[in-house]
Amino acid sequence: MNAPVSFAESKLPLLLGALFVIGLIAPFAVYPTFLMKILCYALFACAFNLLLGFAGLLSFGHAAFLGTAGYVCGMMVRDVGVTPEVGILAGTVAAGLLGWLFGWLAIKRTGIYFAMITLALAQMVFFLAIQIKETGGEDGLQGVPRGHLFGLLDLSDNIAMYYLVFAIFCFGFFVIYRTIHSPFGQILKAIRENEPRAISLGYDVAKFKLIAFIISAALAGMAGATKTLVFQLASLSDVHWHASGEVVLMTLLGGLGTILGPVVGAATIVTLQTQMPDSVGSWVTVIMGVIFVICVLSFRRGIVGELQALIKRSGVN
């Protein structure tokens, strides 16, 4: 009866396998730094999508996790002198803890109030980042060395760095995939579909939302920490609310609640931002706005969502 669904599902491993191979050979065809930027934002968007697409929670403060993890990783690597993998781990844990705090404060509220609280908390983090001198204020945390992975592999080589970023992305993607397709993910979907019913079946929905929030924050942090190593810079723009807005755009454009949508969305937006001719200048913001409006008005399911619907329709006929 619902053959199209199982069709799409049976093809997914194949598609993921193909994408994996492309990811492996890509740095020989495309500029690796550009690819690494895409992968970092793709992981950030996937983490965000876990929250909005599968738990139904709209966070407007995800930049706080991206940026904080970047600062923590940068300080650990540059000032404490730990190896890069420890720096990334530290950034991820810091973002997870911050997510715990944000989640704990925000989850009692729903809808727009939830979004507002996350935004307000993220603005506080932004304010702190400007004020304290350890973060370098407007200049950000500069001169972060990429170092040697496990003290052995020199990451100043762009190809080596790329494969680390790719491995981290795959790990993060797998964690999200597994979370969605787990006993926990099943309850999360139930809560998104009908929260009162989930409560009436005996589930403490706040706990499920909090865990989802922490996982999402930690993975957003992992993306931010990795990004800091790639660009050797933890920048103030990563904690700015622009970044929180951008991740919403990437996710919606690619396809909310689809596993690959955020990747496609992030790739599209990053490509637009970096490949746009210089003459466009700050008009890029306007162009993004227009894309957002078009996306919301005419293809609400996003690129991947619309494609899936197309396959489903043609599968029925």
Binding site: R178, T179, H181, S182, P183, F184, G185, Q186, I187, A190, A198, L201, G202, Y203, K207, F208, I211, I215
Partner: peptide
């Protein structure tokens, strides 16, 4: 969803 709670794995996000 109704049966799941008695398995006690409802928080296990790492399980298939």
């Amino acid at each position: 969803i109704g049966l799941q709670r008695k398995l006690g794995t409802e928080f296990h996000f790492w399980k298939s």
